[in-house]
Simulated scan of single mutants.
Amino acid sequence: MAAPESHAGQDRTVRRALLDAALEVFAERGYTDAGLTEIAARSGVPAGTLFQHYGGKRGLYLALWEEFREEQERRTAATLTTERDRGVVDPIALFVAGARAYLGGAWDNRRLARLIAEDDGPAGFDALRRQWDRAWVRRNARLLEVDERHRAGRVRVSVLTTVIGGAARELGDCEDETEALEIVDEVCGILVHLSTPPG
């Protein structure tokens, strides 16, 4: 009988193979046209095991999104911790550093970022994405020390967050890392300009 750690390791390997294959197929065909048979075949995992782990195509898609979201949050939080440890306290500088980290993650995981930005996802995904976007705006408002009770502040943070999201989508179409870095630098300059409160 296999040790529990060995079984858990095999489980992780199977899940990783399924997610990697799902990302390939979703990226090539889109969510709607992706087939579970093809995902199972590419992963080398039986279709029944796919259902056992993820319940189907929707579960695979949501697991990929969750993985991307968590990695982006980890990356951004680590950057903010590093900046604060270096003595950075300016809210705009911290916000831009976090945005740079987020955009770097969007470039590093561009196939997944591009997939998530498309309108071709499972039923109900748009509502989940909007919910996460609202939470992202709230986190950015706290980081920028904006009073969310004032509409102008809320709108400013919403616009800034939208700029970052739009730039992340653009990174998915970049030809190479040089072009991606130029976009990140340009967007961070725009964010500095837009982050400065009027007056």
Rank of each mutant, 00 (worst) to 15 (best):
I92D: 05
A152G: 05
G105S: 07
R142H: 10
I92R: 05
W107C: 04
H150M: 07
L143A: 12
G104C: 10
A93M: 08
V96A: 11
F95L: 05
R151F: 15
V137G: 02
D85M: 11
R149K: 02
V88I: 15
L143S: 10
L128A: 14
D120S: 03
V146C: 08
W107I: 02
L94M: 04
A101E: 07
W132I: 11
L128E: 15
R110N: 03
G124R: 07
R156A: 11
R142P: 00
A135I: 06
L144Y: 02
A101Y: 04
R84Y: 00
R84A: 12
A106P: 04
W132K: 10
A97S: 14
L143P: 05
E83S: 08
D133M: 12
R130M: 14
I116T: 07
F125N: 06
R151C: 06
D108G: 04
V88E: 14
N109M: 10
G153Q: 01
D133P: 00
R139V: 03
D133I: 13
R156S: 03
R100M: 05
V155Y: 06
A93W: 01
G87N: 08
R149S: 13
T82G: 04
D120P: 01
G121R: 05
D119E: 13
V96E: 12
D108M: 02
N109Y: 09
G105M: 08
R111E: 13
D126I: 10
A123C: 03
I92T: 15
D126W: 02
R138Y: 04
A101V: 13
G153P: 01
R110E: 03
V88R: 12
D120L: 01
I116H: 00
R138M: 09
F125R: 01
L128Y: 09
A113K: 00
R86T: 07
Y102R: 14
G87V: 11
R111M: 06
D85Q: 15
D120C: 04
R129W: 11
D147V: 09
D119G: 14
G87W: 08
D119F: 04
E148Q: 13
P91C: 07
R84K: 14
D85K: 12
R139W: 01
A97T: 11
D119I: 06
V146N: 03
F125I: 10
R130F: 12
G87F: 10
V137S: 05
L103Y: 06
G121H: 05
A101I: 08
Q131T: 15
Q131W: 13
D133S: 12
V137M: 11
P122L: 05
G104V: 09
L103F: 09
R86Y: 06
D90W: 05
D85Y: 00
P122H: 07
G124L: 08
R142M: 11
A106Q: 07
L128V: 15
A141R: 04
D90Y: 02
D120Q: 06
Q131F: 13
L94V: 11
F95V: 07
W136D: 15
L128Q: 14
T82R: 14
P91W: 08
I92Q: 03
A152D: 13
L115V: 11
G124M: 09
E145H: 07
R111L: 10
A101L: 01
L144A: 09
F125Y: 12
R100C: 00
R134Q: 14
A101H: 03
H150Y: 12
